[in-house]
Amino acid sequence: MSRRIDHFVLKVDPILCDGFGHCHELAPELVHVDEWGYPIINEQPTSSSDLALLKSARLAVRGCPRQALRIERISGPT
């Protein structure tokens, strides 16, 4: 099977992150926050065909005041 890059995960740079919590507001399906307000991100790859989730992930990336988030595209679970 050819490797297809059809999944994504949201990744946070923990050093840049200051716990504003915007990502949780913008993408509650992907990001939870801990008791100190720092994001706990769903580590399971999400299918890129799930456009609603991809959209909210993009919103979270764009809405992060510290620009600590990014979307990493990976090949999904085989």
Partner: peptide, 9 residues
């Protein structure tokens, strides 16, 4: 104290 989970956790 760069990362929240470490600095507060």
């Amino acid at each position: 104290r760069q990362c929240g989970p470490c600095a507060f956790g």
